[in-house]
C-alpha cells in the first residue's frame, strides 16, 4: 500500500524488480477490471497475463507522463477488446458460459423444500445473469460505471467513445436491466 509509486519517469527504464512491484500492487485491480468485463475467471486470468506482458514489452514506448495505472488500465481495455473481437469472430458471443454459469447460479434443486432453498442466492444469480446478458457495448459501459466506479467521462476516455454515447449506453443498460428484473421488482424484496 505504502510502496513508493512508480512515477511515469521511471517506466521507460523499468527493471524486472520494479515491474514485479507494479504487478503486485495493481495485478488484482486489473484482474477485477478484466473479470467484470469478461465475466469469466479463466479468460480474465489469461488477459491479465497478456496485459502485463504488453506493458512489459512496450515499457520503452511509454511517454512517461502521468501515472502508470491509467496506462495499465487502457492496455487492459485494449487487450480485452482484442480478445472480444477475436472471440466474436470465432463464434457469435453467446454471452454466457452456460455450464459454468449453471454451477455458479445456485439454482435450487427441483426437489428441495422451499425452506431449504436460498432465495437470496437465487435472486443474486438471476440479477447477475441479467447484467451479464445485457447487449454489448451497453453492458461494458454499465459494468465500468456501476462496479468499476468510473465516471462517464473516464469511461469515454478509456474506451475512446464520445461522452454522450457513454451516457446513452449506461442509460440503455439501466433501462434493459430494470425491464428484465421487473417481475421481481414489485413482488420480491430485492437483496
Amino acid at each position: 500500500m505504502n510502496a513508493p509509486r512508480i512515477s511515469a519517469s521511471h517506466v521507460a527504464g523499468l527493471s524486472t524488480h520494479q515491474f514485479r512491484e507494479l504487478f503486485e500492487r495493481e495485478g488484482s485491480n486489473v484482474l477485477r477490471f478484466l473479470l467484470r468485463l469478461t465475466r469469466n475467471r479463466s479468460d480474465a486470468d489469461d488477459l491479465l497475463q497478456e496485459t502485463f506482458l504488453t506493458v512489459w514489452r512496450k515499457r520503452d514506448q511509454f511517454e512517461g507522463r502521468g501515472a502508470i495505472e491509467g496506462w495499465l488500465k487502457r492496455t487492459a481495455w485494449r487487450t480485452y477488446l482484442n480478445a472480444r473481437t477475436l472471440r466474436e469472430r470465432r463464434s457469435r458471443l453467446a454471452a454466457l458460459d452456460d455450464e459454468q454459469r449453471a454451477q455458479e447460479a445456485a439454482e435450487p434443486p427441483a426437489d428441495a423444500g422451499i425452506e431449504q432453498r436460498d432465495a437470496h442466492a437465487f435472486l443474486t444469480a438471476k440479477i447477475r445473469a441479467a447484467v451479464d446478458e445485457l447487449p454489448e457495448p451497453a453492458r461494458e459501459a454499465f459494468v465500468l460505471f456501476r462496479f468499476e466506479g468510473l465516471t462517464c467521462a473516464q469511461i469515454a476516455s478509456l474506451t475512446d467513445t464520445p461522452l454522450k454515447t457513454v451516457e446513452t449506453r449506461v442509460a440503455r443498460a439501466t433501462k434493459l436491466l430494470a425491464e428484465r428484473l421487473r417481475p421481481f421488482r414489485d413482488n420480491v424484496p430485492l437483496p
Binding site: 511515469a8 486489473v30 502521468g66 491509467g70 488500465k73
Partner: peptide, 13 residues
C-alpha cells in the same frame, strides 16, 4: 483501481 495520479489520456477523476 486508483486514479490518484492523473495523466493525459488516462481515466482520472
Amino acid at each position: 483501481m486508483s486514479d490518484a495520479h492523473p495523466h493525459p489520456g488516462a481515466p482520472s477523476s
